[in-house]
Design a protein around this nucleic acid. Sequence first.
DNA 1: GTCGTTGCTGCAACATGTTGCGATAACAGC
DNA 2: GCTGTTATCGCAACATGTTGCAGCAACGAC
Lengths: 157, 157
Amino acid sequence: MTGQRPAAERATDRWADVRRRLRARGLRWTPQRRVLLEVLAGVDGHVTGAELVERTRRIDPTTTPSTVYRTLDVLEGLGLVSHSHGLEGRQEFHVNPRADHGHLVCPGCGGSWELAPDEVAELVAGLRDGRGFEVAVDHLTIEGRCADCARAGMARA
Amino acid sequence: MTGQRPAAERATDRWADVRRRLRARGLRWTPQRRVLLEVLAGVDGHVTGAELVERTRRIDPTTTPSTVYRTLDVLEGLGLVSHSHGLEGRQEFHVNPRADHGHLVCPGCGGSWELAPDEVAELVAGLRDGRGFEVAVDHLTIEGRCADCARAGMARA
DNA sequence: GTCGTTGCTGCAACATGTTGCGATAACAGC
DNA sequence: GCTGTTATCGCAACATGTTGCAGCAACGAC
Ligand SMILES: [Mn+2]
Ligand SMILES: [Mn+2]
Ligand SMILES: [Zn+2]
Ligand SMILES: [Zn+2]
């Protein structure tokens, strides 16, 4: 009997912190939020908003999109997730973002790459010094033609 | 009589070039495209896609969104317009883009500023040299906190 | 355990595009 | 002017979110 407890307790512990932080802001711990956090716990890397709605529905089919998106807003406020935008401007969420990073996307092949902090360091510093503008690096998505697509384009032209 | 001709001819001339370029690609000159070009001729600076649908409908109420957006794609292919994305990821069109330029947007106040070419020159050069990635500067939108909102944030904290 | 406050949910409507498809019409050739 | 080819149109359905609102329920207080 007690042999099964630890797993459940570990899951409880994982959520206890979130619950505490919600309560500290006067916000509430609801079944819907628990389900979304369960989904997020199983995510590695990036997920789109639609995908999160989908996965949440697999656990609880009564889930509605508005609740999911509103909860994601709340969790972003807590720093548990962050979002940027993919090719069609769709939301892409990062779970437990370790370090801020932007993305490079190529509409030609649909490819996507993470941007290392030092690749945008000068841009960030330049805009801060020149305009007092603080770039949201984790929200940054730069579109353009990747090396492979550029080569293919040259061959065609 | 002939005194009224020039204006009409000027308008005809303005479109003759577009028509010619469409035909050169095997594409067609239709009443719907003429109306959209009439709308675009009256635009200075940026417009959202929804706004273009709206204005086109004011000239021809039977206009449908799909035709407007598909025509905008075609005109973008001709280089007559280009688009980037605003705060909510919505399309913003530039008419007759003189020089490529990106944008800075601040979710705090909704402000938007144009990016001078030299402000992104190093970023563009760095990604080209380091990855062979060619940034679409006219599509670039950088989100962050503007100087005014940063000051307001400091005061609050 | 009950109560009151108020944050949260689910619904319905809406906003902004996108896509598949059958009917229409622009254009070149005659 | 006709005719044939095929790009384009309009419609309907869909994708991805967002927002207003009325009722529900999480939570702290007692
Ligand atoms: Mn965003
Ligand atoms: Mn785009
Ligand atoms: Zn590519
Ligand atoms: Zn601002």
